[in-house]
Amino acid sequence: MLRRRSHSSVGDAAPSDKELRRAVEVAGTIADHAALRPWRVIALRGEARERLGRAIAEASGATGHDADKLAQKPLRAPLLLAVVVSPKRSAKVPDWEQEAVASGVAHALSLLLDDAGWGVMWRTGHYTRSGAVHRMHELDPDERLLGWLYVGAKPSRKSGRRSTADAKRHLTSL
């Protein structure tokens, strides 16, 4: 985890469908109360990224050059993985816990892809909850988009060291 870095700029190569399926299988083994698997991942390649760009521009209300600039954002990586909370009815597992599981899958997936040599960055923003983006991803009414993992070839230049958390501030005892 100390070696992992977010890569805001990646190259044109991306994992194959086979590599991606395996990473999703492994990421899906995270702790999941009642084994509900309340998540799914949508792979966006090629033209699907362009449709997402148009949906983001529509959601923003921007026009002209500003809309064009927003529409280019999903083209920054050859593969985007939309991470979706897909809640399941459960008397035992509340909605917030199911969203936490989907977040865990996204984080595990980013670690797995990074370890496999891919550049990854998790992007979020208010567009994830917009109607236009929801429709573009063909989400069910109760599903929520957490964001996208932008995935591509890892850049050759190294980024700086990640500092660790101050355990004295973040770890307490009762």
Rank of each mutant, 00 (worst) to 15 (best):
L146R: 06
D68E: 15
E47S: 14
A27M: 08
L52A: 07
I30M: 13
T172I: 14
K154Q: 14
A77Q: 02
E25S: 09
G11W: 07
P78L: 10
L44K: 09
A43H: 05
A23T: 07
T164K: 06
A14F: 03
K168D: 15
G104A: 11
G64W: 09
I56V: 15
K168E: 15
S130P: 05
I30W: 08
D114E: 10
A82F: 02
K158Q: 13
W118I: 03
R40P: 04
K69P: 01
P87K: 05
L139D: 10
R144L: 08
L36Q: 01
L112V: 12
A106I: 13
P94N: 14
G152F: 04
K154H: 05
S130H: 05
E138K: 12
A67H: 04
Y127W: 15
G125C: 12
L113M: 08
L81V: 02
S156P: 08
A48I: 12
R123T: 04
G160T: 12
I56E: 01
H134E: 12
R162H: 06
S6I: 03
G64H: 10
H170P: 00
A106K: 05
D17S: 09
T63M: 11
S159K: 13
R22C: 00
H7P: 05
L111C: 11
S163C: 01
A167I: 14
W39S: 02
R49L: 03
A59M: 11
A62N: 09
T164G: 14
R129M: 15
A167G: 00
A35K: 15
A43I: 01
V105C: 04
P74C: 05
L20H: 02
L145G: 04
L81E: 04
G11A: 02
A57P: 08
K73Y: 04
L52S: 09
Q98K: 01
A31T: 11
A153L: 03
V133C: 04
L2I: 15
R76H: 13
E138D: 11
L149H: 10
A102W: 11
R4D: 08
V101H: 09
H33A: 14
L70E: 13
L171Q: 02
L174N: 06
T164R: 15
G53W: 05
E143M: 11
R76G: 13
A27F: 12
V151W: 02
T124K: 05
V41C: 09
H7D: 01
G125M: 03
H7A: 09
A43P: 13
R144Q: 13
R89E: 13
S16R: 11
